[in-house]
Nucleic acid binder design. Sequence first.
DNA 1: CCTACCGATCGGTAGG
DNA 2: CCTACCGATCGGTAGG
Lengths: 240, 240
Amino acid sequence: MLKISGFANLPPMTRTRKPAAPAAPAPQTPPPAEPARRPRGRPRKTALEIDDGNRRRALMDCAAELFLTQGYAATSVRDIAAAVGMHSGSPFYFFKSKSDLLHAVMHEGMLQAELSQQQAMQALAPDTPIAERLRTLIRHHFEVLLGPRSGFIPVMLYEWRSLTAVQRNDVSGIKDRYEAVWAPVLEQLHAQGALQADPGVARLYIFGALHWAVQWFSPRKGMTLDQLSDQAMALFIRKD
Amino acid sequence: MLKISGFANLPPMTRTRKPAAPAAPAPQTPPPAEPARRPRGRPRKTALEIDDGNRRRALMDCAAELFLTQGYAATSVRDIAAAVGMHSGSPFYFFKSKSDLLHAVMHEGMLQAELSQQQAMQALAPDTPIAERLRTLIRHHFEVLLGPRSGFIPVMLYEWRSLTAVQRNDVSGIKDRYEAVWAPVLEQLHAQGALQADPGVARLYIFGALHWAVQWFSPRKGMTLDQLSDQAMALFIRKD
DNA sequence: CCTACCGATCGGTAGG
DNA sequence: CCTACCGATCGGTAGG
């Protein structure tokens, strides 16, 4: 289930037109059933020469940025193709449909977010206070939403309705696991009186508060993600 | 500036096909320059017979519902026309463009929200405690977002990017006035220690938390808007 | 408001 | 991946 690709090692949101040098083939996503035999004679730039993994990734990065800026329905496949330097029909070589591309963005984004959240929590010492655990979750969530590699999750938040029911169901599974990590933390904070509201409702409110930062946060406006996290903690958690 | 139409008296979000009896002419919005002279002979259902104000409203109500469900770009003018029982070209008799219709929804929604917020606050006794003032603002905001007449404001929240720059600027003015009411309340709560976070950032977080309820709140799931407001207060405001 | 229509754009495909 | 293409849909308009 947790088939994490090398996503974390690749810089998303980079708009590249015809990359200068085709990078090393990505080991993760298997190319869509392309035969392995080599062409005879002088190598030409054919489907066999193309680094399918990287082109897929480039499409997803550009798609995410455009979906976020203009919305899924208002973005044409031609827009995306142009952004990565392809011709209008070429994205369909990598993705069965526009809808599949949207789904791939959300699916990969959630897998990556789940993985990095796990890593952030496991890096904490076993005796870390609960409030500090929540701060870590919040800080990590801002990284996912607003950090240098962001884009996929904001698209998920604001284009949820553009998924089909089947796709929603698929992404929901990962999203549920991601959110489930927060529940025990909030429950313990509630038990010790630091969180006044019901933990279940609080989780929904807190996610809303954090998610909405996508709409207004600008890194140039002075605040860092750390300060953002501190303010969130101050708002939600009682400090005695 | 505050040319409030009779909006509050009309039930939005009602999907009507060919209303049985043409209601009394709405006094508010002046019809788009339709001559006042009567046709001779037997009255026919022509442009002169049509209640332009009500048809405009019906278009806005249906448009808001569809924009919210499917998104602005994914909703065709034909969809909207069909929902109110018109033919495909007819909405352009009432609105210059699809974009104008979206703008009208947001503009009217914000005017109405600003008015009802003013009324809710003015109904409070002068010596009402500050925490109770915030609760009133929150409760009213939930009414606007989730109440029986909701729809226009959620569309504004989630289709902001679909507006042109000029339209955004126009709606921003009303939105700023609506939000400005919250600032002194939060500042006073901060001054007396009931709000720990910076009031400016807190306002952004709180709006995010409340706005997001549009995504998950379902009136059948048990909670009332009052309970929702109480939980929000418990989350944000320190009770000693 | 309807009728009849147009030009533009869009998702997607066949075949290499 | 490109070339060349198609059928469908869409926003909008003229004229009544």
